[in-house]
């Protein structure tokens, strides 16, 4: 993602090739240039075809379909912006949007803070350092569905680990996922837990670029550990933090698997998300047009985030 903002190398590489025809051996050069062009296109065509058919075309089709009423079985019917009007007036989609924002608002900063502290702690010569890193990163490499399955069992009201642990310290158990007051929080906990790993990794990479002499100078001046963290580490991690923030928001907005497994959007839509509404409209109610319009709304949110991220990453390239 970060690299997506750097088209500069292409132009740099292209320039000599374009300058070449002015060289003395012109006819020869242009023939080899044609050969190169053919080879280049041959090698890039399968990928262009694949991405064109399975990504570019679907994106365009999503926008077109969002203006139709389409149930797969009958031909699509043009209805203008009616789907968007329906979405605007739909309390469920509004709730889904709100839930998505709440989910993002809690999972992202919480796991970012934890990830940063861990990254700072792991950025020194610690015995077992690799093992700690592995443990924190493990939830990231395992499937969200499998992980959600384990959490479903942990949240189980009768035999679950969570209620058992709470009963030890005298707190009454809950049907965490069936209670509308708790279900969103239960989902948020899983999301925050799983998201720590990748954020930690980006922070560790960023910390390796921080000049150690800054810390040594601060030590000479007698700065405390806490002071060093706030005066050196935090400012130095600012670009990384911004990058992590944006990619995490983009990721959090696309939460789906754990909702499917843990709550199915319930109880009473308390945990339904924008992605879940797209899924329901398209594949349970077969309202392909409405689902497309909903996914355009989701896309609009994400586009804003991506544009911010592009500006941010371009910022630290320079």
């Amino acid at each position: 993602m970060s690299a997506s903002t750097r088209p500069a190398p292409t132009t740099r590489l292209l320039r000599p090739a374009r300058a070449l025809p002015s060289a003395p051996r012109r006819p020869d050069r242009s023939r080899s240039q044609r050969k190169l062009s053919r080879a280049g296109w041959l090698m890039v065509t399968p990928a262009v075809a694949h991405i064109g058919l399975w990504t570019a075309l679907p994106v365009l089709a999503t926008f077109a379909l969002s203006l139709t009423d389409y149930n797969i079985f009958d031909a699509p019917r043009w209805i203008g912006i009616d789907n968007y009007i329906q979405i605007w007036n739909d309390p469920t989609f509004r709730l889904a949007t709100w839930n998505t924002v709440v989910y993002t608002f809690w999972t992202v900063p919480v796991s970012m803070a934890i990830a940063m502290v861990i990254a700072v702690a792991l950025n020194q010569n610690l015995w077992l350092r690799t093992w700690y890193r592995t443990a924190f990163f493990l939830p990231q490499v395992t499937a969200t569905v499998a992980i959600a399955m384990v959490w479903l069992w942990i949240y189980n009201p009768q035999q679950g680990l969570l209620n058992a642990a709470l009963s030890v310290i005298g707190i009454p158990g809950q049907a965490w996922l069936a209670n509308p007051d708790w279900s969103l929080w239960a989902v948020i906990l899983v999301g925050a837990w799983q998201g720590i790993g990748i954020k930690m990794l980006i922070y560790i990479a960023a910390l390796q670029n921080v000049d150690n002499s800054l810390y040594e100078a601060a030590s000479v001046d007698g700065a405390s550990v806490v002071r060093k963290f706030f005066a050196i580490t935090l400012p130095m991690l600012k670009p990384a933090t911004f990058f992590v923030l944006v990619i995490s928001i983009i990721g959090a907005f696309q939460v789906f698997d754990q909702i499917y497994v843990l709550t199915d959007g319930g109880p009473a839509n308390a945990t339904t998300m924008m992605t879940y509404e797209v899924y329901r409209s398209a594949f349970q109610n077969f309202q392909m047009g409405l689902a497309s319009a909903q996914s355009v709304c989701l896309f609009a949110f994400l586009l804003v985030m991506t544009l911010i991220s592009r500006r941010a990453t371009r910022g630290d390239d320079e």
């Binding site: 088209p7 292409t10 000599p16 679907p58 586009l303």
Partner: peptide
């Protein structure tokens, strides 16, 4: 390989980088 139209192809791929799953799943 400096082939003709390379910049356009590359820009196309870059644009596709940002497409979230849910914006293409229905037509797919």
């Amino acid at each position: 390989i400096p082939f003709r139209g390379r910049e356009w192809v590359f820009m196309g791929f870059v644009a596709m980088l940002m497409i979230p799953t849910y914006t293409k799943i229905v037509p797919q």
